[in-house]
Nucleic acid binder design. Structure first.
Length: 163
DNA sequence: GACCTGATTGTTAGG
DNA sequence: CCTAACAATCAGGTC
């Protein structure tokens, strides 16, 4: 009983149009509700776009924490096989974490965003020069971003005196 | 064999 | 200002 077309890019029912928004503002809890009704969460459901270098959104602090959490969770629950379990456990744990604990994760997320901005710049550039799409391949290793040297300074300045 | 779904929160960009 | 959607993961489920 497949709810929608198996291969189709998640075709939602007309209900979505009937009830696009029903909850109040602020609480994204409704989103969960929507996922059940419309289920438009993340997945691969793009109509096919031509993106030279898809600038995927940087993982939020929660995701950064989750990445590590997943490993730990698996170690403690090798039998478990539900992604949702990690999500739930991670979500609760995340809220349980102190701001100081999330600080390092947020810092990482912030860095991710910086990189994302850079990628977006390139992405925007490509989009602008649609004429060069032909040369894009041969030229890509040349122009691109000029400052691509090894400038990796992992500065970990954490002054956790928040508490 | 291939593609989608679930669940968590945060961030991001557009209207 | 607010809304909608998407970011990872991974195995199960369906065609």
């Amino acid at each position: 009983m497949r709810p929608t077309k198996g291969k189709g890019p998640v075709k939602k029912d007309t209900k979505e149009a009937l009830k696009p928004v029903e909850d109040k503002v602020g609480k994204r809890k409704a989103v969960s509700n929507v996922s059940k009704s419309s289920k438009r969460q993340a997945t691969k459901a793009k109509p096919a776009k031509k993106d030279p270098n898809k600038p995927k959104r940087p993982p939020s602090a929660f995701f950064v924490f989750l990445e590590e959490f997943r490993k730990t969770y698996k170690l403690e629950h090798p039998n478990n096989k539900a992604v949702s379990a990690v999500g739930k456990a991670g979500g609760e744990k995340w809220k349980s974490l102190s701001p100081a604990e999330k600080a390092p994760y947020e810092a990482k997320a912030a860095k991710r965003k910086t990189e994302y901005e850079k990628v977006m710049t390139s992405y925007n550039k490509k989009q602008e020069s649609v004429d060069d799409e032909n040369d894009e391949e041969s030229d890509k290793s040349k122009s691109e971003v000029s400052g691509e040297d090894d400038e990796k300074s992992e500065e970990e300045d954490e002054d956790d005196d928040d508490e």
